[in-house]
Computed example of a mutant assay.
Amino acid sequence: MNDMLIGAIAMASMVAGLFFLRFWRSTGDRFFLFFALSFFIEGVNRLVLAPTAQDNDGTPAYYLIRLLAYGLILFAILDKNRPGKGGS
């Protein structure tokens, strides 16, 4: 059951990444590109680390990869809201 849920989360992350990638292609805004990359990283993280999830769940690799993904989201938000940026 746990493997099925991890697969569903990975699939949902990939679909969200494709969703943001589509908006990036139509607008050219880096904000959507950073969000797409973040969701793709999260989806790949779930797929690659899923077989070893029960054995070593507390390893730093899990958290460093997630930190990178969430850091991209934070960077996208900060980059979008910089004063004098002009919008995109």
Results as ranks from 00 to 15, higher is better:
Phe31Leu: 00
Asn81Gln: 05
Leu74Ser: 12
Asp79His: 10
Leu18Arg: 12
Arg82Val: 07
Ala69Arg: 09
Asp79Leu: 06
Phe39Ser: 03
Ala36Met: 06
Phe35His: 05
Pro83Ile: 13
Leu72Phe: 03
Glu42Lys: 01
Ala50Arg: 01
Leu64Ser: 03
Arg66Ile: 06
Phe39Ala: 08
Tyr63Gln: 14
Asp29Met: 02
Val48Asn: 07
Phe23Ala: 04
Arg82Asn: 06
Phe19Pro: 02
Gly28Tyr: 09
Arg30Ala: 04
Phe34Arg: 09
Asp55Cys: 11
Asn81Thr: 10
Tyr63Gly: 07
Phe31Gln: 00
Leu68Pro: 00
Gln54Thr: 05
Lys80Ala: 15
Glu42His: 08
Asp29Ile: 10
Phe35Asp: 06
Thr59Asn: 03
Leu37Phe: 04
Leu68Ile: 08
Gln54Leu: 04
Gly28Val: 12
Ala61Thr: 15
Phe75Glu: 04
Tyr62Cys: 05
Leu72Glu: 13
Val44Asp: 04
Leu21Arg: 11
Asp55Val: 14
Ala53Gln: 09
Gly43Met: 12
Thr59Leu: 10
Arg25Gly: 06
Tyr62Asn: 05
Phe31Glu: 01
Ser26Met: 10
Ser26Lys: 12
Leu33Ile: 01
Phe39Asn: 02
Asp29Asn: 14
Val48His: 10
Arg22Asp: 07
Ala76Pro: 00
Leu72Gly: 15
Phe23Asp: 11
Gly43Asn: 07
Ile41His: 09
Arg82Ser: 09
Ala50Thr: 09
Val48Gln: 03
Arg30Asn: 14
Leu49Glu: 03
Phe20Ile: 01
Ile41Gly: 13
Tyr63Lys: 08
Ile41Pro: 10
Arg30Val: 07
Arg25Cys: 12
Gly84Trp: 08
Pro60Asn: 09
Phe34Tyr: 10
Ser38Leu: 00
Arg66Leu: 14
Ile65Trp: 05
Phe35Ile: 02
Asn81Glu: 01
Asn45Tyr: 05
Val48Asp: 07
Arg82Tyr: 01
Tyr63Asn: 12
Ala69Cys: 02
Leu64Phe: 05
Val44Asn: 01
Ile65Met: 04
Phe32Arg: 02
Ala61Gly: 12
Phe39Asp: 08
Leu47Asn: 01
Ile73Met: 03
Phe23Thr: 06
Gly58Pro: 00
Arg22Tyr: 10
Asp79Ser: 11
Thr27Leu: 07
Leu68Cys: 04
Asp29Gly: 10
Asn45Pro: 00
Glu42Trp: 02
Asp55Pro: 02
Phe19Asn: 13
Asp55Met: 14
Arg22Cys: 05
Asp79Glu: 13
Ala53Tyr: 11
Phe39Gln: 11
Asn81Trp: 00
Leu78Ser: 01
Phe23Pro: 03
Trp24Leu: 11
Phe40Pro: 10
Phe19Val: 04
Ala76Lys: 00
Gly28Glu: 08
Pro51Met: 08
Phe39Thr: 04
Leu49Tyr: 06
Phe32Cys: 13
Ala69Met: 03
Ile41Leu: 15
Ile73Ala: 01
Ile65Val: 14
Pro83Glu: 08
Ile41Phe: 06
Ala53Lys: 12
Gly71Leu: 11
Arg22His: 04
Phe40Val: 15
Phe20Tyr: 12
Gln54His: 03
Thr52Ala: 11
Tyr62Ile: 13
Arg22Met: 08
Gly58Trp: 12
Phe32Trp: 15
Pro51Lys: 05
Thr59Ser: 05
Arg25Met: 11
Thr59His: 02
Leu21Tyr: 13
Ala69Asn: 08
Leu21His: 12
Ala61Ser: 10
